[in-house]
Design a protein around this nucleic acid. Structure first.
Length: 596
DNA sequence: GCCGTTTTCGGCCCGACTGTTTTCAGTCG
């Protein structure tokens, strides 16, 4: 297996996974196998690069990485190789590690195939396996048959063809359609959407659905007949999994009773469940999706609250069930009171169709009036009309000031709009506070794209990076701090610049950013656009720990996406943010004192 | 190999489904 000094998390996870598989072939110690596997998944899901942690001497903060694996990784980052790993894999056919990616094939099967078919090298291994299956050679191997030969062929065909993870709204939309179909069966008593969708992860891989029914067989038969099903992966008395035509997997479970344990189990996360079960074990209890076994006798639960309560814990909101300290907090009755969608009193970041002739970036499609109308419908106390700053390449500073001045006049006219007054009534228009804000580019040298006199026309500004995104961590940090330093600037929008599935975003020296924000009363945005969700949940948690305030904005370019702010709230919740951490959870009479 | 407010030794989550088997091993979530 090829290794080098600069492996990323994905590659390291694959390496440790391969070591786990190798041990599964070579040694009896089942727990060593699990240990490597756990370290691999922990690294795969880690949010900072393991190499960076190693640089900072913080390797031991990664769960599942102890003395031994830690030393191996140290060797890897220093020399690009790990002698111990090489030794373990030396007498195994490298081809087996290629086969592990084929669905349904694990270490034992992979090894057996290599041995029996005489496939060794990594290159072309899958092709050779395919040819053997086509020539009906696999069914001759002991323990294999016609069916497993067929499964291997379909498995190979599936390789690399699985759809990528979905953005949250896309997954929700897909799930909604499936649920509508499931409910058509009269035997269905309750349907619940669980898994990562319930935990509101920023992207969703599989869709998990649980149904309460007195007639499991009928309901499962009904489920697998859904017209969008391409392939039934498995189907039994209690659960079924299917692949949709869209190449997304749906896992489906049915149960008659004790639904509380089922909701808990199927919501996950896996690591939360494992930790929970280990905690229970200390008390002599055994957890499963059916309930809690006390001295061999199963105790059932109607709801999750009773389930957690029986374990001596408070009910844990799904968004934070990621095994990052929530179990300990629930035991100590010290869970945070997470911010809610209904706490949000306004939105600072919306884009209108106001034209400068040439704006710097995408404009919105709705008018100021339509945005204000939507804000009133959402029950907001205030609304920020932002828009991008005029482009510096097409305007002189004087032109920029003139344009912003014109924009200001238009915004001041809104409250007199006959159309709005007609639609909503004078009273509601008077109640909402309309803020003239602006999303100002931070130019690559850290200066702002709007001259001071332009900024003075605003209620306040916020800044964002839209160019030169490849700058290194130090330069980018300096650039952003320079922008934040302006007295008219209140926060940094979409702080990491990531686009889910498209680009990673730039690196920042977060300790410096947090420190600056805290000392100067600047905030960080949680941008609720589904392909941004930026800050990320993990950085939100860090910000909250550091006492930095957040704002949750929609960044809507059309009024219907103003409701997407709920996804931003989910990110805040996943980052353990409470109402007090969120600036736009403040009522206007308190907010007005902060933005001078 | 990892881990610890009942442990630095002695544990390590739990169950469903499938294929090839006559009772289970392997894989998956």
């Amino acid at each position: 297996m090829k290794t080098n000094k600069n492996m990323n998390n994905q590659e390291i996870a694959a390496l440790l996974g391969a070591i786990s598989a190798a041990y599964e072939i070579k040694e009896g110690n089942k727990f060593k196998i699990i240990a490597y596997d756990r370290a691999a998944t922990a690294i795969e899901h880690a949010t900072s690069e393991i190499k960076d942690l190693w640089d900072d001497g913080k390797l031991d903060t990664v769960p599942g990485v102890g003395v031994s694996i830690g030393q191996h990784l140290d060797e890897l980052f220093r020399t690009g190789k790990v002698k111990h790993f090489k030794k373990i894999m030396s007498d195994l056919p490298m081809a087996m590690f290629e086969f592990l990616d084929i669905p349904g094939i694990g270490p034992k099967t992979a090894f057996k195939l290599c041995e029996s078919l005489g496939i060794n090298g990594r290159i072309g291994a899958v092709k050779k396996l395919k040819r053997a299956a086509e020539k009906r050679k696999i069914r001759l191997i002991e323990g294999f048959g016609e069916q497993s030969e067929k499964d291997i062929l379909t498995g190979i065909a599936e390789l690399g063809r699985r759809e990528e993870r979905m953005l949250l709204p896309h997954a929700a939309e897909l799930a909604k359609k499936i649920i509508t179909y499931i409910k058509k069966n009269p035997e269905v008593k309750e349907v619940h959407l669980l898994g990562s969708l319930r935990r509101c992860c920023s992207t969703v891989g599989d869709i998990d659905i649980a149904v309460k029914t007195d007639n499991p067989g009928v309901v499962i038969d009904h489920f697998v007949k859904y017209s969008e099903v391409k392939k039934i992966i498995n189907k039994g008395k209690r659960k079924a999994s299917v692949m949709l035509k869209s190449r997304h997997q749906v896992d489906f479970r049915v149960q008659r009773k004790s639904f509380g344990a089922m909701l808990q189990y199927f919501t996950g996360s896996k690591h939360h469940n494992i930790h929970l079960r280990e905690e229970a074990l200390k008390k002599g209890l055994s957890l499963s999706e059916y309930g809690i076994k006390v001295k061999g006798k199963l105790k059932r639960f109607e709801n999750e609250k009773d389930f957690y309560s029986f374990l001596g814990m408070d009910w844990i909101p799904p968004e934070i069930r990621e095994n990052t300290g929530e179990i300990e907090a629930a035991q100590a009755h010290k869970l945070p009171s997470l911010v809610k969608f209904s706490d949000i009193k306004g939105d600072f970041h919306t884009h209108s169709d106001f034209r400068y002739q040439e704006s710097s970036h995408d404009e919105g499609i709705n008018s100021f009036e339509e945005i204000v109308q939507k804000a009133i419908n959402l029950g907001y106390e205030y609304i920020g009309l932002a828009d991008h700053s005029p482009s510096v390449s097409n305007h002189t500073p004087r032109q920029i000031i003139a344009l912003l001045s014109k924009r200001k006049q238009e915004i001041e006219q809104i409250k007199r709009s006959k159309k709005l007054i007609h639609l909503l009534g004078r009273e509601k228009i008077r109640e909402i506070k309309i803020l003239n804000t602006l999303e100002v580019d931070i130019l690559s040298d850290g200066s702002l794209a709007v001259p001071d006199k332009g900024l003075e026309l605003l209620d306040f500004a916020f800044i964002a990076v839209h160019s030169s995104m490849k700058q290194n961590r130090k330069t980018m940090t300096r650039r952003i701090l320079n922008g934040l330093d302006h007295p008219k600037v209140m926060f940094l929008a979409h702080p990491t610049g990531r686009k889910l599935g498209k680009r990673e975003g730039y690196e920042l020296e977060w300790e410096k950013i947090f420190d600056f924000c805290l000392r100067n009363n600047k905030w960080l945005e949680i941008n609720a656009m589904p392909d941004r969700l930026d800050l990320t949940d993990v950085l939100v948690r860090e910000a909250v720990k550091n006492g930095v305030k957040l704002v949750i904005d929609s960044d809507a370019h059309e009024v219907k996406s103003m409701s997407f702010i709920k996804y931003g709230v989910s990110v805040a919740r996943r980052g353990w943010a409470e109402k007090k951490d969120v600036i736009n959870a403040l009522p206007w009479n308190q907010l007005r004192n902060i933005i001078k």
